[in-house]
């Protein structure tokens, strides 16, 4: 594992509080994930790939933005691994990089129709940009 990968891995584990070694690779998370089909990588892969140093692959994937944040995998994981927290933390890590914004403020405003609740707009602002 190179230095950058190690740094990223350590950071994401620290800020997410996830311990991938607790995973028994049962696939409950991916069995319960409501947005499985839309995501390039699936919840169980997030856990395994972080452990195996494939973190940048995950960070470069749009999958981190397609997690619904619904915590079904967190709630139902029998090993207390909480893959969803890892996905969220990876998205955060991505934002923290230079030019790491996923969308700018204007992009977000442009995406919203007139019925979008304010809460959703605010959430997008928080999730997609620094």
């Amino acid at each position: 594992m190179d230095q950058n990968t190690r740094f990223l891995t350590e950071t994401v584990l620290r800020i997410s509080g996830v311990d991938p070694r607790k995973c028994m690779k049962c696939g409950k998370c991916s069995g319960t994930c409501p947005n499985y089909d839309a995501m390039e990588y699936h919840p169980h892969q997030f856990v395994s790939m972080v452990e195996n140093g494939l973190i940048e692959q995950l960070m470069n994937s749009n999958a981190v933005y397609l997690c619904l944040g619904c915590m079904a995998c967190v709630e139902r994981c029998p090993r207390h691994v909480a893959p969803g927290k890892l996905v969220g933390a990876l998205a955060q890590l991505k934002l923290r990089k230079q030019d790491g914004n996923h969308k700018g403020g204007n992009d977000i405003a442009a995406m919203a129709d007139e019925k979008v609740p304010q809460q959703l707009l605010m959430a997008a602002m928080r999730k997609y940009r620094k």
Binding site: C29, S30, G31, H44
Partner: peptide, 27 residues
Amino acid sequence: IKGMVGKVAREGDKLMVRGSDLINNRQ
């Protein structure tokens, strides 16, 4: 099927079982 079931939902007289199929990388 190597994988786990995330949800069992009744729909009519069927039980819709959603789960992971890890070997085939699909739900």
